[in-house]
Write a protein that binds this DNA or RNA. Structure first.
Lengths: 183, 183
DNA sequence: AAGGGGCATTAACTTAGGTTAATTAGGGGC
DNA sequence: GCCCCTAATTAACCTAAGTTAATGCCCCTT
């Protein structure tokens, strides 16, 4: 992860990419629109969300300082992003066209390794999430998130957490009540 | 995908890797054990399964001819595989130590691209599965799998499909009844 | 043709999440 | 301090999935 940040840092410098500021509620990129940039989050917190035709919202992920936001589908396959990216906290962000990242990494082959490694890290995270949806109950997913990501847990609303866990805010409230009763 | 198969094909030839035969029920690799090989499936059908301490089984994926089976965690991060691989149909398989794949791809830098591309394909598949668990009901996942993967749908038991969709076989049977009634 | 084994279906009951709406709690602004 | 706005909780009811077990179906064997 660190090596990838190094790479991005170099790209940003060479291209004089500015640091952008966003407020809570601002949109970094939209659902259904091609977004060929990666967003390097220097500070703040964002969420990736799917909005269904019926208006229902689901949270794919939370990303915070030092994370990289973006849509794989857009960046790699040049398709519209299936999800949007919303700011939760005020954010400082560097937006980097993926073409620039690629361009530079073509010239320096050892950076392929860095890119590959980053993909592997991403994949490992996705494996974990897949496992949790397949094998764990909502209650177990809640406990796991609370203990595994305390720094994010503290910074999001309960409604947002519920939509990340794949349940409704009402259900999450009930789970908490249940846990309190047991303990 | 095709370019990755080319790469694997070369590795197999150069190392005289034999084609292995498995019967239904055979285990390609175990859960909880380090498995540093990739399994190139020439023919047949396998499933990747999590077995929980209480005996409950969940199906992570089905892989068939031309797919590559293996555990990312084991192959990349040298950890025990969190899941096992079981044969469903008789299989012809070439087992390839990942170290050999790496070794050879070190010498031919353009293969880094192939490797990266393969990871991206994998990630795209995982994104889709994540989306389905987060945003779709079991019933919708069933319909999506049936129409999206008819060639696999035909070859697995209903129980296996249910455990892949994240529900019990009884629930899947009910879903089918429900759908028949509606149509 | 009869029996047996393995799945799938059905049934009956329990549990937990979805939905909608009312209520409560907490924080910020004035 | 009071009001308002928002978020969280609670309630009541509905629906769907989990669980266990019985039944039915199909195919294979003998």
């Amino acid at each position: 992860m660190d090596k990838y940040q190094q790479l991005l840092s170099n790209v940003a410098e060479r291209n004089n990419l500015p640091t952008l500021s966003y407020k809570p509620g601002d949109i970094l990129f939209h659902q259904g629109v091609l977004e060929p940039r990666l967003f390097w989050i220097k500070s703040g917190l964002v969420k990736l969300v799917f909005i269904q035709p019926d208006g229902k919202e689901f949270v794919k992920a939370f990303l915070a300082e030092n994370d990289i936001s973006g849509s794989l589908m857009s960046v790699i396959f040049e398709k519209p992003s299936p999800y949007a990216c919303y700011c939760i906290e005020p954010c400082e962000v560097i937006a980097m066209p993926y073409s620039k990242v690629r361009e530079w990494s073509e010239k320096t082959p050892q950076l392929k390794d860095v890119e590959l490694e980053y993909m592997q890290q991403l994949t490992a995270r996705k494996e974990e999430r897949e496992y949790q949806f397949l094998c764990l109950t909502p209650e177990e997913r809640y406990k796991s998130f609370k203990s595994g990501y305390p720094h994010i847990f503290k910074r999001i609303s309960q409604a947002e957490l519920a939509l990340f866990l794949g349940i409704t805010p009402v259900a999450l409230s009930r789970i908490k009540t249940r846990l309190k009763a047991t303990a």
